[in-house]
Write a protein that binds this DNA or RNA. Structure first.
Lengths: 217, 217, 217, 217
DNA sequence: CATGAATGAGCGTTCATTCAT
DNA sequence: CATGAATGAACGCTCATTCAT
């Protein structure tokens, strides 16, 4: 039986069991972390096994293919890890809000702050989603996947606000995308003079969202 | 020690003469066009001389380096060409407007329509700006360059509107980036069900821009 | 941005351990030997990975860069190997001599004989030293390196002879270079008619050295 | 009839006539000079048409192949030019001497001085002779050619000295080669501390030659 | 006399991956 | 769990040369 067909060599050892040995999990985490940093710093095109190996401080690239099988699966693991981190950090902060307007503000705050403090993870995710392709050359993750962690949380709020009458009528899909883009734009803006603080950015964005969504008086 | 200095073998000519032979210009245009299509379809990472050669229907990749020197200079040429096209198509449409609000609407209309009808050029530009790096690994074109053709035109309008009292106070840099992002988001949105027409998208965006910028009554 | 730093993919290992696996050492020796022969026969300019691969009888040029990293490092390895061989063969033959004159004669004998019987190694070293350049175009090994293995051994003898009063006053650096050159010239001379035997060459050279260095009576 | 088969395109125009137009001769001289400088500075391996073109300040490498046909023929022309210069500068200085000893001294003086003052030409010649190969990979100019301009003048003097009884018996071929090598070594020596003046070098060499060749008293 | 346009072959290097233990 | 050795394919780029005017 062939051992490697796109599957990690370790995953098949305990067939069926979702658990992984402690050492293996640690190794995987170490490699994923190195991959995130490399993606953020060098970009997808320069993110090679050799560079990841170097940053992770491991002896051979063989260790990477040993634990993840192929490069694509490593990218999957990175995406999963980043998505998990974002979800854990953001979702709970929106929970307490009762009004759609409040929820929207809370969500934007949470999101922009997380993005600002986890730029490497965000860049890594972005690099993968926009560049990772399969053998035929088609993007493996559409904008869909990119949107999921962040936009997915935004659109339900917008829909709820329209249904409750808090918000005016607009295309919720486009508005969600716009707000998500605005959040990313804020990170770009913060890097440029004249300097804006994180709090100022948050305020600008929540104001913008409020004005763009509220029902005309 | 390098002798070509990364310059096209055909370019130099003693004086600063902008002249280029007819045949050479045609070849360059042909290659640039093939490069744009390849970038849009295959992404920066898969945009190789071999693929460009194939799409351009020329005999050898040598023809590319003959006319452009290095890959980096070809990318420069692509960026220049796309920038020129966008400028020519967009700038004049904003000229006639007297009010900031009218100019903003006109600019958004012009921009979203151009982007919608020139998606290959836009994708090509995006791929280059986000992925092209120099030998040391740093991005050759910052977000600055990306922003120039589009954002540069947006921000002056916003500033003028604030000065004339038409617009409320907000950070013009962030607002320009947000509107630019929203335009790109509209393209993404149009590709997803439920379907939105171009006109509907334009309306959504101009409405959003109006609400976000107008002075509170 | 480069990750391999021009290092062999197999070399690193955390500590400064001189150990290399048996198989790897054998492969390296095989490749170095093929490189020496190629350099001697085809010259530095025609010494390509493809030719070395062919002569070594290995499957791919990739094996060379796998074991040596870059071409420059392969050249380094060749130089090191040839230097080692020469040192081992020559140095001990001079050890027993008490007088400077005797040492000089012994050294010349040993050197000319080694050079005559290891012409490939000598040519390889010569090709590298005179042609190998770095990226900026400067010679990587000055005449210094070339001289080291052979001249370095010559000059101390000359200095000792002057100090002991055996030799007349002359510039030891120039004399050492001259004798080294004369040894190389002997190899050239042997290839031309009328034929000279190795022993005759040695005699001619030792006589010349004796006459040129001895104190005037 | 094909115009180019290893022959310069201009040479065939005035078939049979050894004269060349003034402009063509000037161009050829300009290119040869640039080739000499490039060979001396960058070495044979890096002496490309592109670099020569640049240094000569001409518009296209096509001009080189136009005037010289192939690279090999350009190298021939360089060799011819350098040989001519050396011959013109050296030969007359030996003319007036009556004794072999005097002629030898005069020749060494003339040769070392010319070499010292024309290092680029010497390096160029050396680069060509040691590296230029034909399509099959064999050196196009043996040591023979290198030796011609310089050694050729040395050996007759040595032979004459032996016949007249001035010099002792030794192999004139090896001695000539040795003295030629010693002259080149002097140039190397002069570049190294402790500094030696040209006059000192000449004195060291003529003394050495005298001691090595004179009849034992 | 000079130039423009084109070209195939070859270069060293980098890549992810696979076959062995 | 980890490593060593090997590999074919592809990359951008440089080379001298040739077919046209």
């Amino acid at each position: 039986m062939r051992v490697t067909d796109g599957m990690s060599e370790v995953s098949e050892s305990s067939a069926g069991s979702p658990e992984r040995s402690l050492a293996a999990s640690a190794r995987r985490a170490q490699i994923v972390e190195a991959a995130i940093e490399t993606l953020a710093e060098c970009g997808h095109g320069q993110t090679t096994f050799a560079r990841i190996r170097q940053r992770a401080g491991i002896s051979s690239t063989r260790l990477i293919s040993y634990h993840f099988g192929t490069k694509g699966e490593l990218m999957d693991a990175v995406l999963e890890e980043v998505g998990l981190r974002a979800h854990q950090a953001i979702s709970q902060r929106v929970a307490g809000e009762s009004s759609a307007s409040g929820a929207l503000t809370a969500r934007i705050e949470a999101q922009v702050e997380w993005v600002a403090h986890n730029s490497s993870a965000v860049r890594a995710m972005s690099e993968i989603c926009r560049n990772e392709r399969d053998a035929e050359g088609v993007l493996r993750y559409g904008v869909e996947v990119t949107a999921r962690a962040n936009v997915e949380g935004l659109e339900p709020i917008l829909r709820a606000g329209q249904e409750s009458g808090e918000f005016r009528q607009f295309d919720t899909g486009l508005m969600a995308l716009t707000l998500k883009s605005a959040i990313d734009a804020a990170i770009v803006r913060m890097a440029r003079p004249p300097r804006l603080t994180l709090a100022q950015c948050v305020h600008e964005l929540t104001t913008l969202a409020h004005l763009a969504t509220r029902k005309e008086s």
